[in-house]
């Protein structure tokens, strides 16, 4: 299968290891990965902040970037960005009165998958240890991000994949379904409420005794990780793609601080 990777802007710029892990997993399964060159961002930050006019060129760019190349499916290691591509792009186009863009966005959205959706529903991965050689000997907990859970209905796909990783120990996160408080610009505009939500999330994470908290959205992980770092907990965050990509031979390293790139932790 020819798979187009939508890295997402935050992963591209801040967490390249997540996208590299995604490439690694898909290539291990024997698929060809392409990276549509014009891609940048889904536009969610603009939309969710009310800047719909400014979102339009971002949305239009994404649609153009992902209709130029030939591929079977597109994938992103983010529930939130995929939800934006699938739902918000149509809304932005409609609101701006661009019916043509709306139809094109719908076509792109229809073949875009979140990583765990693609792995489980399309590529039939049920046992990461056996099918991907995934090995990650750490005690972890897992936070299901809101948009994956509620907009894409990912259910336990990410969690089940993590459970099937060799050597892993999964600690259940209390009140896992509660939002971490990120919410894009909400974290700045309503910083006090956001921080209160974050404090409850990090307390629950630390209470599990896990070394790190895994998740499927870099933005939420940056938020949770930023809080864990500020509190000096020594607990870190990691995208589930990096855990799936980790093997006995090439283990993903865990640092006791905000995890940045594999480059950094390998130093």
């Amino acid at each position: 299968m020819r798979i187009a990777l939508f890295a997402t802007c935050i992963v591209d710029a801040m967490y390249p290891a997540t996208a590299r892990a995604t490439v690694s997993i898909l290539e291990r399964l024997g698929h060809e990965v392409i990276f549509p060159a014009g891609q940048a961002c889904c536009g969610q930050m603009h939309v969710n902040s009310g800047y719909l006019k400014e979102a339009l060129p971002v949305v239009a760019n994404h649609v153009k970037a992902f209709e130029d190349d030939e591929y079977d499916v597109a994938v992103a290691p983010s529930g939130s960005c995929v939800a934006s591509v699938k739902h918000q792009h149509l809304m932005v186009a409609r609101r701006c009165g661009d019916a043509g863009l709306e139809a094109r966005a719908a076509a792109v959205g229809a073949k875009t998958y979140e990583l765990s959706q693609l792995l489980v529903d399309v590529l039939g991965v049920t046992d990461a240890a056996a099918q991907l050689g995934s090995y990650f000997p750490h005690r972890i907990t897992y936070h299901p991000s809101c948009h994956g859970m509620r907009l894409l209905r990912l259910g336990d796909r990410q969690l089940d994949l993590l459970r099937s990783v060799g050597g892993i120990e999964l600690a259940e996160l209390p009140e896992a379904d509660q939002c971490c408080g990120f919410g894009g610009t909400f974290s700045m505009k309503n910083a006090d409420v956001s921080s209160a939500m974050l404090a409850d999330k990090t307390a629950n994470i630390c209470g599990t005794g896990a070394d790190l908290c895994a998740g499927g959205d870099a933005s939420c992980l940056m938020h949770i990780g930023g809080g864990l770092s500020r509190q000096g907990t020594g607990v870190t965050t990691m995208h589930f793609a990096e855990i799936l990509a980790s093997t006995l031979e090439n283990p993903a390293a865990v640092s006791g601080d905000v995890r940045l790139t594999t480059g950094r932790t390998a130093r």
Binding site: V11, Y15, F35, A191, S195, G227, T261, G263, R264
Partner: peptide, 19 residues
Amino acid sequence: GWTQSRDIPAPPGQSFRQW
């Protein structure tokens, strides 16, 4: 508002696109 309760990680040496 962000840094009142959260750190931001140092950016990576190269972006995914560059890699």
